[in-house]
């Protein structure tokens, strides 16, 4: 309950800051990929909540871990039970901002490189991240994309001894969000 209240306060802070111009989606896509010597692991999640405040540059996304879909059922089981422990840590979140907001003109159509800085929380561990992404400003919305690597050890995700060295220690995460203006209530 405490976590929910904290998250709601943070999201509220984003929404209530200044003359907020919010763009949101509930169908964002987050996928990850790792190519170790033992096996290739790929999974995707297409029900990701994401929002950006184009006035302040604050940007969030939230992912339910159990919504990741894998090609192999066994991988999905291992992912949820042994790696991310999704019963204990059901969500992954990112809360941060567009660091170079002055370089991104959300009022003009075009594609802009963006530096995204903030806190990425996976497996209950929060780390500072700074990654390059793009925002494509188009008619009626903004498409945000970023691809970056995370080190499993940084999030206290341990690889079982039997497969150490055969599963990649870094995984590539891709985020694609098609953000639309927030409907007015």
């Amino acid at each position: 309950m405490k976590k929910i209240v904290i998250t709601l306060i943070l999201i509220n802070a984003i929404f209530l800051t200044g003359n907020a111009q919010m763009f949101i989606t509930k169908n964002g896509k987050v996928s990850f990929y790792s190519d170790g010597s033992l096996e290739k692991i790929e999974a995707y999640n297409t029900q990701v909540n994401s929002a950006i405040n184009i006035t302040t540059g604050q940007f969030v996304f939230k992912v339910l871990m159990k919504s990741f879909s894998f090609e192999k059922a066994l991988m999905q089981e291992h992912f949820n039970e042994n790696y991310v422990e999704s019963d204990k840590f059901p969500n992954a979140t990112f809360q941060g901002l567009v660091a170079n907001l002055n370089d991104v003109d959300f009022s003009a159509l075009g594609t802009y490189d963006a530096i995204i800085e903030g806190d990425l929380t996976i497996h209950g561990i929060k780390n500072k991240v700074k990654e390059i992404g793009t925002f494509e400003v188009k008619e009626g919305g903004i498409i945000g994309s970023a691809t970056f690597f995370v080190k499993l050890a940084d999030y206290d995700i341990s690889i079982p001894g039997a497969v150490t060295g055969k599963i990649a220690e870094d995984i590539e995460i891709s985020v694609d969000v098609d953000l639309k203006p927030r409907p007015t209530n």
């Binding site: 929910i4 999201i11 909540n49 919504s67 879909s69 059901p90």
Partner: peptide
């Protein structure tokens, strides 16, 4: 698959 503090997600 859970509740993301806005919606319950069923896959």
């Amino acid at each position: 698959t859970g509740y993301n503090e806005t919606d319950v997600i069923i896959e």
